[in-house]
Design a protein around this nucleic acid. Structure first.
Lengths: 216, 216
DNA sequence: AACATTGTTGACCGATCGGTCAAAACAATC
DNA sequence: GATTGTTTTGACCGATCGGTCAACAATGTT
């Protein structure tokens, strides 16, 4: 096997795996782990069921792989902030980035939501470990901002949860949102309007005077 | 059959039905419609599977009945407001009531969330009908408040969605929240703190000067 | 006591579940 | 062209799915 053919084969394998992962993400996100069937995933991927198992090993392995892929996409948010950062700028970015991630990976976001709804059987460790530390470390910095008079002295944990929930709502509850708005899907104008609203309310609500809010 | 025995029989029937509904709510809320099995519900209710079907007819009928029961619990919120109402008082009540409902009916709330995640196959009509009209009518009044200078001119729809998402988060994502906080469940102190935070940020963020915020 | 109604439940149905396997198809090396 | 390794896939496995049914208790009603 030459390096060339090896690359070709790996590329082919990757393409098929991506097809399967994409199909599985759709099915799992709609019906959760228990409610999803390998047959439904196979139909979505337009492959025989046995082929799914050949590439992914088992239903559980496929599911865990999807969860990990989604977790990796969420890194690098609020990562490089310090007590010197501008809260308005940082929170503004946070809101826009979270909103963008939800729109970019709607199925992945719903998959995560379904996992949490089920009691997070596969993510308990991650939540109580990595993510807990991440929140705690961000909270320390936000508290420093408050002590420096940059913003109101609100509980940073509730603030983080607020931004998470407010942004995720538009992907995970998209069926409700579009039903109420009477639209097929959220338009670009809607999204811009929502971002602006959330920035306005949350920044102002935290006592942050946005000096240069529109500097993107 | 005397009126007395009729009552007794109906009471017995009701007790069993409530047992089944409660068990089903737990199972459906964790695993969604597809992922829930009648056997799991029967085990939870400590009844033979055939008995579940005797009382409920079918899996779908049981599920729809649970959804309707949950919808009814959500009525009477923001129902009797006018342009003369005090936005601070109304939104404050809205936040507290929503938060309380989520804590009172956690399984029902998760059931609703799972239904929306699946694309709202059983609630599409309700969302695009009743609920859409409800939101639209509330939006009119909130816009009037803004025109009267009682609050900032924010999009009422986004405001309603914000309060929905922020409050529901603590029941539907309870696995994530408790995992991050490192607690078994949210304490009363946590809940009070969260309510206070949400009131502070949302009211202030909407430009509402809470004159008499603590008059409950 | 005889009868009718309602409640209970194990046994069973065809369909589908996640997963295995072997035979065939395919590709690469000698 | 024989050999070796990798994909592909229909057939199949025991278990479980939602749902039916008949036999049987329990409970009025007369």
């Amino acid at each position: 096997m030459t390096a060339d053919t090896a690359n070709q084969e790996n590329a082919s394998r990757d393409r098929i795996e991506q097809t399967i992962l994409s199909a599985a993400e759709q099915v799992f996100s709609q019906h959760g782990y228990r409610g999803a069937s390998l047959q439904a995933i196979a139909d979505q991927a337009k492959l025989p069921k046995a082929n799914i198992l050949y590439y992914m090993g088992s239903k559980q392995a496929l599911y865990v792989r999807l969860l990990n892929r989604m977790m990796n996409r969420w890194n690098a948010v609020l990562e490089d902030i310090t007590e010197d950062s501008d809260p308005g700028q940082v929170l503004s970015d946070f809101i826009r980035t979270k909103m963008m991630l939800g729109q970019r990976y709607p199925e992945g976001s719903k998959l995560f939501a379904a996992e949490i709804l089920a009691g997070a059987p596969f993510l308990k460790e991650y939540l109580a470990g990595e993510l807990k530390e991440w929140v705690a470390s961000r909270a320390v910095i936000i508290r420093q901002w408050a002590q420096l008079g940059k913003m109101d002295d609100v509980d940073p944990r509730w603030l983080i949860f607020l931004i998470w929930s407010a942004t995720q709502h538009y992907t995970e509850y998209s069926a409700q949102v579009t039903g109420i708005l009477g639209e097929e899907a959220l338009s670009e104008a809607d999204l811009a309007s929502i971002c602006q609203f959330l920035e306005h309310v949350i920044l102002k609500g935290c006592g942050i005077t946005s000096s240069n809010a529109t500097s993107h």
